[in-house]
C-alpha cells in the first residue's frame, strides 16, 4: 500500500509555474543504526524519485540515507496541459510505489 501525501493544484493557467509537494511514508532506514543486542539494521531507503506530467519526466531525484524519514520533496513545474501528474518512488527493495493527481490547465 502506497501511503503518500501529494499537494498540487487542481487547476492552473497555461504557462503558470505551480508548486508540487510530495511526501511518502517510509522509514528511510540508513543502514548506520543498530537495533536491539547491537544488531545492525540493514539499509532500506527510497533511492529514486521521479515525477512525470502526462508521461514526460519533469523532475527526478537521487536520494541517499541522509534524507529524513518520510521523504519530503517540494519542487515546481510549468503547467503545460491538462492531465496526470504521476509520482514514483523506488526503494532499495526494488519496489516502486506510485501516486498520481489530475490537473486541469486552461
Amino acid at each position: 500500500m502506497t501511503r503518500a501525501l501529494i499537494n498540487a493544484p487542481k487547476t492552473a493557467r497555461r504557462g503558470e509555474i505551480v508548486e508540487i509537494r510530495a511526501m511518502l511514508a517510509h522509514p528511510m532506514e540508513t543502514g548506520f543504526r543498530t537495533g536491539t543486542m547491537g544488531k545492525a539494521i540493514p539499509r532500506d531507503i527510497i533511492n529514486r524519485f521521479v515525477c512525470t506530467w502526462n508521461g514526460e519526466e519533469i523532475f527526478s531525484a537521487d536520494l541517499f540515507p541522509a534524507i529524513a524519514a518520510n521523504p519530503y520533496l517540494a519542487f515546481t513545474a510549468v503547467a503545460t496541459e491538462s492531465g496526470t501528474i504521476a509520482f514514483a518512488w523506488t526503494g532499495d527493495d526494488g519496489e516502486t510505489r506510485t501516486a498520481e493527481t489530475e490537473i486541469t490547465v486552461t
Binding site: 509555474i17 540508513t30 548506520f32 506530467w53 514526460e56 519533469i58 523532475f59 527526478s60 531525484a61 537521487d62 536520494l63 541517499f64 540515507p65 541522509a66 534524507i67 529524513a68 521523504p71 519530503y72 520533496l73 517540494a74 519542487f75 515546481t76 513545474a77 510549468v78 503545460t80
Partner: peptide, 24 residues
C-alpha cells in the same frame, strides 16, 4: 557517515530552480 544527501534533476519544465526537502 556518508557525504551524499540528494541530487535533483531539473530543467526548463520545472520553470524555476527551486527545491525543498528534509535531511538528516
Amino acid at each position: 557517515p556518508q557525504a551524499d544527501v540528494a541530487v535533483f534533476h531539473i530543467g526548463p519544465r520545472t520553470g524555476r530552480a527551486e527545491v525543498a526537502t528534509r535531511i538528516r
